[in-house]
């Protein structure tokens, strides 16, 4: 089966003699190659710089207009960028969008965190190699399904299904939250599984040696040891849920509202608008205009970038700590 590899290996000795004979001239090439590769690495920094520049540049134009200032943007409780409220003005308050985003994050967390952890434990501790070989790629496919497909799945399948049990709106946070949860299960499960597999076998054996059952070993030794890895997977997955766009645009609605209280269940059954969905809404309205609505997209992007940035840093920090443990 592996003929090309074999031939490649067979070729190597011949090449190696070549190398020694040409070595002297290679040093300059070496340096050049190093710089080219380093430039590739630097490009990633440029991308970040570009993102921050674009967001701040746009946001600064937005805040420079006298419609809203930073404080008003961060504390306003009405989001109406393209339709006027009763007093004849447009309103740019991010809080309803943050509320919508948080509702999605919480719903998806309820679905994905336990499920993902359970799957990770099963795959690393219980599953036979054969089962694992089937389940693992299948779960990974879940992460690869285009998010717009999840949106239609929620709208045309999950919402009608839920409608049998609840008084639910066509657009609602619940079904959008459920599909976002399904979408991030593989993220939780695969990173957590890596962390759980990284727990040294000696710990398990020590626990068994003390008379622990498999259940006790898993829940009291293995999972706590892998905790930082698991938490880091949680944070990353939730950060993805915050940034999820098309599924919530299609399924959760486009109506920004502040959370319902005390009828908290309404938060799930009613439509909401997330930060990302609001950006898509504005984009499909005013992509090139010089209107505040267009500029608000960048302020939203900046807020979104800030939220995910902090969460990613936290995840990185936690994961870094756990790596040092073994």
């Amino acid at each position: 089966m592996s003929t090309p590899e074999e031939t490649a290996r067979a070729d190597q000795p011949a090449d190696a003699t070549d190398i020694t004979s040409r070595k002297a001239g290679e040093i300059q090439l070496d340096t050049a190659v190093r710089y080219v590769f380093a430039a590739c690495g630097v490009l990633t920094v440029l991308v970040t710089a570009g993102i921050i520049y674009v967001l701040i540049d746009g946001a600064q134009v937005f805040f420079a207009s006298d419609i809203v200032d930073v404080q008003g943007f961060l504390t306003g409780n009405t989001w109406k960028p393209t339709s006027k409220t009763g007093d004849g003005t447009y309103k740019f308050g991010i809080l309803p969008l943050v509320s919508g985003t948080l509702i999605i994050v919480v719903t998806s967390a309820v679905i994905a965190l336990p499920t993902g952890l359970g799957a990770a434990i099963y795959l690393s501790e219980y599953a036979s190699p054969r089962t694992r070989a089937i389940f693992k790629p299948t779960l990974e496919i879940l992460a690869g399904v285009p998010t717009i497909v999840y949106g239609f799945f929620a709208l045309f399948f999950i919402t009608p299904f839920l409608d049998n049990f609840f008084q639910i709106r066509t657009f609602n946070a619940l079904s959008a939250g459920i599909v976002v949860g399904i979408m991030i299960i593989p993220m939780v499960s695969s990173i957590s599984e890596d962390a759980i597999s990284a727990v040294p076998n000696s710990l398990r054996e020590a626990a068994y040696g003390l008379g622990s059952t498999k259940f006790e070993t898993t829940t009291r030794v293995v999972v706590p040891s892998a905790l930082s890895g698991i938490i880091s997977s949680y944070v990353l997955a939730l950060s993805r849920a915050i940034g999820e766009t098309m599924a919530v645009t299609v399924a959760a609605g486009q109506s920004a509202k502040m959370p319902f209280y005390p009828n908290v269940e309404q938060n799930l059954l009613q439509s909401i608008e997330t930060i990302t969905a609001a950006m898509i809404n504005v984009a499909s309205a005013d992509i090139g205009g010089n209107t505040p609505a267009y500029d608000s997209m960048f302020a939203l992007g900046l807020a979104l970038f800030g939220m995910t940035f902090v969460m990613n840093l936290v995840a990185e920090y936690i994961a870094g700590r756990y790596r040092e443990e073994y």
Binding site: K80, K84, G88, R169, T170, G253, Q254
Partner: peptide, 10 residues
Amino acid sequence: RVIRDDFEGT
């Protein structure tokens, strides 16, 4: 472009 807040626009 004047309308009430609580309608579902799509």
